[in-house]
Amino acid sequence: MIVTVTLNPAIDVSYRVPRFQIDKGHRVENGSKTAGGKGLNVSRVLKQLGSEPLCTGFLGGGSGAWIEKKLIDEELKHSFVQIDEETRTCLAMIDEHGGTQTELMEKGPVVNEQEIEKFQVSFKHLLEEATMVVASGSLPAGLPPDFYREIGEWARAANIPFLLDTSGKSLELGVEGKPFLIKPNKEELCQYTGKSDLTFQEMIDAAKGICAKGVEYVLISLGAEGALLVGHAITLRAEIPVVSVINPVGSGDSMVAGMAFALHNHYDSVECLRWACACGISNALQATTGTIDPQVVRKLLSQIKISTL
Rank of each mutant, 00 (worst) to 15 (best):
F180P: 10
V42C: 10
L143A: 06
L143T: 00
L127S: 06
S244Q: 02
E187V: 11
L189D: 08
E96A: 03
G174Q: 02
E85I: 03
T288E: 13
K195Q: 14
K186T: 12
G50I: 00
A158T: 03
E188T: 04
V111K: 06
P18M: 07
Y192T: 08
P161G: 05
T308F: 01
E150P: 00
E96D: 15
P184D: 07
I246T: 07
D253R: 03
G214S: 10
A206D: 09
R156M: 11
L127H: 07
L7T: 05
I160F: 07
V249S: 04
N30I: 12
L301T: 05
K77N: 15
I240F: 04
V256M: 13
E113V: 12
V28S: 05
P161Y: 03
L59H: 01
F20P: 06
E29Y: 12
S138V: 06
G194W: 08
A212M: 11
A233H: 14
T166F: 08
L181K: 07
Q295N: 15
K69C: 05
D165L: 03
G50T: 03
Y267M: 13
P179H: 02
R149N: 11
H264T: 12
T291G: 00
L236Q: 02
V175Y: 08
L40P: 08
V110H: 14
A257W: 08
L189A: 03
L49H: 02
A262M: 11
P18W: 09
K69L: 09
H97Q: 15
L189V: 09
E150N: 12
Q191C: 05
G36H: 03
S136R: 03
T89D: 12
C90I: 07
L49I: 06
S136D: 05
L76Q: 11
E128I: 12
L300Q: 00
I83H: 09
S269E: 13
R156D: 00
E75C: 07
G250K: 06
L71G: 07
G174W: 02
R298I: 04
G231L: 05
T4S: 05
A287W: 03
P145C: 12
G108P: 01
K305L: 06
L273Y: 01
K38D: 01
F58V: 05
K107Q: 15
R274T: 11
V270K: 13
V297W: 07
V230T: 09
V243S: 05
L181E: 10
E75A: 13
K183Y: 02
T289C: 08
A278R: 03
K124P: 00
D293R: 06
I160P: 10
L236H: 01
L181D: 05
K77G: 14
L139M: 08
F180K: 13
A276V: 01
I240K: 01
Q82F: 01
E128Y: 12
Q295S: 15
K178P: 04
D146Y: 08
L229H: 04
A157R: 15
P140G: 04
D253W: 01
I83S: 05
T199A: 08
T102R: 05
D146T: 02
N185L: 09
V121T: 13
I182G: 07
L171Q: 04
T288A: 10
K169D: 14
R149V: 04
E153W: 00
V218E: 02
E113N: 12
L49F: 10
A227G: 02
N265K: 14
M93V: 14
D84F: 09
C277Y: 01
V242T: 14
K118D: 13
T289I: 12
N8C: 08
L301N: 05
I204D: 09
K118I: 11
P109L: 10
D146G: 00
